[in-house]
Simulated scan of single mutants.
Amino acid sequence: MKFPKILFLIISVVLLSCNERKSGIMEEITPKDFAEKIKTTENPQILDVRTPEEFESDHIDRAVNVNWNDDNFTDKVATYDKSKPVFVYCLSGGRSKKAAAKLNEMGFTSIYELEGGIMKWNADGFSKPSAAQPGMTMSDFDQLLKTDKKVLVDFYAEWCGPCKQMEPYLLKMQKEMADKVIIVRIDVDKNKNLTAQMKIEQLPTMVLYENKAVKWKNIGFIKEEDLKKQLQ
């Protein structure tokens, strides 16, 4: 009868050790709290886990690009101090959630994930306005809506996979449906101020206006036939 007791003790110790390894802070926090914690942390470890192309287009100050999709992601993050806070973000939260879980598994004790990613960070006003390339203003945008036709606004980026998939039929529809709908494509990287003011948090985002009022909105990929139904 002693063997089962010993076995039970061994299993308990193993489970406790696993829990200890994965204990600590792993928290998803708002852009406001994310910014505040970075501000109050000495030499903060900020990991942007997007692709290099995304990182080049826009990133948080002092962030380092460690692509979650790279095969050597684990090797790269292993060089960081596990005992100090680490701040993680991506575009809208999908990749950073996986990266945060991996960091927790590796033994990092304080992991803060940016809620909504850099899209929400920018939408909440934490990005630095671009003086060199202000892009379209809200006044310019309002002028686009002054028409008797419906206006479909497509917020996209060159590096956005779903945006690339949708581009061919959007360009085709611009011509085919010109008598009914004005289709305007806005590159968020060239219009960062407007994107932040419009609170665009995910890509692609499509908004359909009629008489300046929002009639329909879609976030993410949409098939050509489903989009056409909305524009009839």
Rank of each mutant, 00 (worst) to 15 (best):
D48F: 03
K82E: 06
E115S: 13
I46H: 00
E56G: 07
I38S: 00
I38A: 00
K84W: 04
Y80L: 13
G116W: 06
D61I: 07
P44F: 00
K97M: 08
Y80S: 12
K76N: 10
R50G: 03
F55T: 03
W68M: 09
S83H: 13
V64K: 10
N43K: 05
V64L: 07
S96L: 06
K97A: 14
F87K: 08
F73S: 08
N69G: 12
I111K: 08
F55H: 06
E36Y: 01
V64G: 06
V86I: 15
L114P: 13
P31W: 00
T79V: 13
E115Y: 09
N67Y: 09
P44N: 00
V86Q: 05
D71R: 10
T51H: 02
E53D: 05
I60R: 04
N65Y: 05
K84F: 04
V86F: 03
D61M: 05
A78F: 11
G93P: 15
Y89T: 10
D71Q: 12
V66A: 06
G107I: 14
N72S: 12
S83Y: 11
I38N: 00
L114D: 08
G116P: 13
D70S: 14
Q45P: 09
M106V: 13
H59F: 05
S96I: 05
Y80V: 10
E105K: 14
H59I: 06
M106Y: 09
N65R: 06
N65C: 13
Y80M: 10
L114H: 07
T41M: 01
R50K: 01
A100Q: 10
A35I: 01
Y89C: 11
R62L: 04
D48M: 01
I111Q: 04
K76R: 11
R62E: 04
P85T: 07
D48R: 01
T41L: 01
F87D: 11
